[in-house]
Each structure stands twice: as structure tokens, then as C-alpha cells.
């Protein structure tokens, strides 16, 4: 027995260090990639780091990052929500129409409540279908993507929302800030910190990881699997609703389905940020960093006068790189951990 005890400890300790390093490594390497990108771009064109340039990047990242936070929660439970882009569009347009009908009486708060409620309803629908009807998440959210998109176009009917019809306070929310810091990134950071803290520090937050890591074991451990999955979708939908209102506030002028195709960018951001597509692993901080990286690449391409058409291709390539690296690392780490826990040649 003593022999067993003696050689187990060092193996265990270093294994833990190793794994933590790997997980931290994702966030660190994202920061490093960002730093390199910013340095190179600034070296070529110093305007990149001007006050306005930085502010634009943060403004542009905010909504994407918000969606990435919601999507992370869903992906961590081994599911996916492809309908977020269409929800943003629906909410942006409907909220715009709603407040512009009475710009003096309906203010920022009303708009936020209205938009988040629509988003939450969409999320609830997805969640019910996935968790209680056990329909594959990909298919269901593809379907709701279609439906919501059609609904959006139907409601819009070729019209568009104009900034002049909106309450000034709403536009102020989207473009101004306090002490030079715009509101949008502040909102995103607050949401990110709250969700990140919840996921790490509360038992119900850990349930999400448990479900994604092993649904079977989660059920055996008495985790309320369906309720948590439903909650993840509800939350993702509500955040998409919030994102829709902020979209309206930022751009003012909105046509139908403005965030078309965003679902894939959001999923890319989440996966690039280190949330495993098979669930159970990842943090919202990583997902937000992923969103920041994707946005910064877009801005850098403009500044570097690279054909901006490369952006989408790069997003795809980055996603492929991220899942490949994840896979290779996972295989390596598992092998290493297994070697360390093998004792006495078993």
C-alpha cells in the first residue's frame, strides 16, 4: 500500500498542472494571437491603434461576444443553437418597429424588455424541442432559423427601420458611453463576468459541464438534464434578444434579417475560444476572446488593405484549425494522463 501511495502523488500533481496549463493555454494563446495581430497591423498602419479604431473594434465585438456567451452555454451542454442570427434580426426589426411607433413613450428600458422577451420566447421554443422532444439540436435550430427568418421578412415586408424614428436615448446607448468607454462593451463584459462566475462557482452552473461531459453520468448523478438544457437555450435566446436591441441601438437603420449568416460566425467564435464542440469543456471568457479575435481580424484586413472577402474564408480556416488543435491536444493529454495513472504494468 505504501508503495502505491508514494508514487501516486507526484504523478497526480503534475498531471493536474499539465491539464490546467492546457486549458489556460487556449486563453493565453488567443491573447498572444491578438497581440501579434495588433502589433503587425499597427506596424504597417499606425492608425489601427487610434482611439477611434480601438473603439470601433470593441463596439463591433460587443454584440458578437454577447451571442458567443449564450452559445457557449448551449455548446457546453453538447448542443448547438443555429437560430441566434435570425433571432437578432427578428428582435432588431420588431423592436425598432415597436419603439418607432411611439418614440417618446417607449424608451430604452421598454425596448430592452420587449426585445429580450421575444428572444427568450424563441429560445424557449428551441429548448422545449431539444430537451423534451429529444430532437437533434442541429436540425431543430436549423428549422427555427428558417421559420424565424421567414417571420422576420414577413413582418418587415420590404420596409426598413430608420434611425430618425427611434428614441435618441436608444441610439445614445448604442454609440455613446461613460468616460469615453462605450456602453456596449461594458454590457458585454458585465454579462460575461456574471455568466463566467456563475458557471464556475455555482452547483447548477457545474451541471452544464456535467451534462456535456457525460449525459449518462449526469443522469445517474441526479442532474436535472432537461431543465438545464432548456435553461441554456432560454438564456441563449434571451441574449440574442438583447443583442438584437443593441444592434438596433448601434446601427439605427435596420432592414429585415440584418444578422443573416451570423450563427456560423458565433459558433466559430465559441469554438475558436476553446469551447469543445462535443461539450463539457470551455469558458465564456475564451468564447469572448474568440469573438474579439475574429472581429479584430476583420478590422485588420481592412487596415492592411487585404481584400475583405478573405475574412469569411479566414473565419472558416480558423474554426478548422481550432477543432484540429483541440482534437490533437485532447488525444495527447489523454494518453499522457493514462500513462501517468498506469501503475504496476496493469
Amino acid at each position: 500500500m505504501t508503495a502505491v501511495t508514494a508514487d501516486a502523488t507526484p504523478g497526480g500533481r503534475s498531471a493536474r498542472g499539465l491539464v490546467e496549463l492546457v486549458f489556460r493555454a487556449r486563453e493565453l494563446s488567443l491573447v498572444a494571437a491578438l497581440a501579434v495581430l495588433v502589433l503587425v497591423t499597427t506596424a504597417v498602419n499606425p492608425n489601427f491603434l487610434s482611439g477611434q479604431g480601438v473603439k470601433d473594434i470593441f463596439l463591433n465585438t460587443s454584440i458578437l461576444a454577447l451571442l458567443a456567451v449564450g452559445q457557449s452555454l448551449v455548446v457546453i451542454t453538447r448542443n448547438i443553437d443555429l437560430s441566434v442570427g435570425s433571432v437578432v434580426g427578428l428582435v432588431a426589426f420588431c423592436t425598432g418597429k415597436f419603439v418607432s411607433a411611439d418614440p417618446t413613450g417607449r424608451g430604452v428600458l421598454t425596448a430592452l424588455v420587449f426585445g429580450v422577451a421575444i428572444g427568450a420566447v424563441c429560445g424557449l421554443l428551441n429548448g422545449l424541442l431539444v430537451s423534451f422532444c429529444r430532437v437533434p439540436a442541429l436540425v431543430v435550430t436549423l428549422g427555427t432559423l428558417y421559420v424565424i427568418q421567414g417571420l422576420d421578412h414577413y413582418i418587415a415586408h420590404g420596409q426598413q427601420i430608420n434611425a430618425v424614428d427611434l428614441p435618441p436615448a436608444l441610439l445614445h446607448l448604442g454609440n455613446e458611453g461613460v468616460l469615453g468607454v462605450p456602453y456596449l462593451p461594458v454590457i458585454t463584459v458585465v454579462v460575461m463576468l456574471a455568466v463566467g462566475y456563475y458557471l464556475r462557482s455555482y452547483p447548477s452552473g457545474r451541471d452544464f459541464y456535467a451534462i456535456g461531459s457525460s449525459p449518462e453520468a449526469a443522469r445517474l448523478a441526479g442532474v436535472p438534464v432537461r431543465r438545464r438544457v432548456l435553461a441554456a437555450y432560454l438564456f441563449s435566446g434571451a441574449l440574442a434578444g438583447l443583442g438584437g436591441v443593441l444592434w438596433l441601438a448601434r446601427f439605427g437603420t435596420v432592414v429585415a434579417d440584418p444578422a443573416r449568416g451570423w450563427e456560423l460566425i458565433v459558433v466559430s467564435a465559441v469554438v475558436v475560444g476553446g469551447v469543445a464542440i462535443v461539450g463539457g469543456v470551455g469558458t465564456v471568457y475564451g468564447a469572448v476572446l474568440g469573438a474579439l479575435l475574429l472581429t479584430t481580424i476583420g478590422s485588420a484586413l481592412v487596415v492592411l488593405k487585404v481584400n475583405s472577402f478573405w475574412q469569411q474564408a479566414l473565419t472558416g480556416a480558423l474554426l478548422l484549425l481550432a477543432i484540429t488543435v483541440d482534437r490533437v491536444l485532447a488525444v495527447r493529454v489523454t494518453r499522457l494522463l493514462r500513462k501517468r495513472s498506469v501503475r504496476h504494468g496493469a
Binding site: I80, L138, L264, I265, V267, S268, V271, I277, V278, N307, F309, W310, Q311, Q312, A313, L314, T315, G316, A317, L319, L320, I323, T324, R327, V328
Partner: peptide
Amino acid sequence: LGLPSLAVTIGTLALYRGLAYVVLG
């Protein structure tokens, strides 16, 4: 690599469409 085809083809969905734009604008 044993990657899930869903994730791979979401990636190549963006990649190939992006290349299409690169080719023709």
C-alpha cells in the same frame, strides 16, 4: 482526425463560401 463532420463542415461552409468571394468578389 476523427473530428465530428458537423463541426468540420460548418468550418468549410465558411471557408469555401469565403473562397468563392475571394475568387469573384
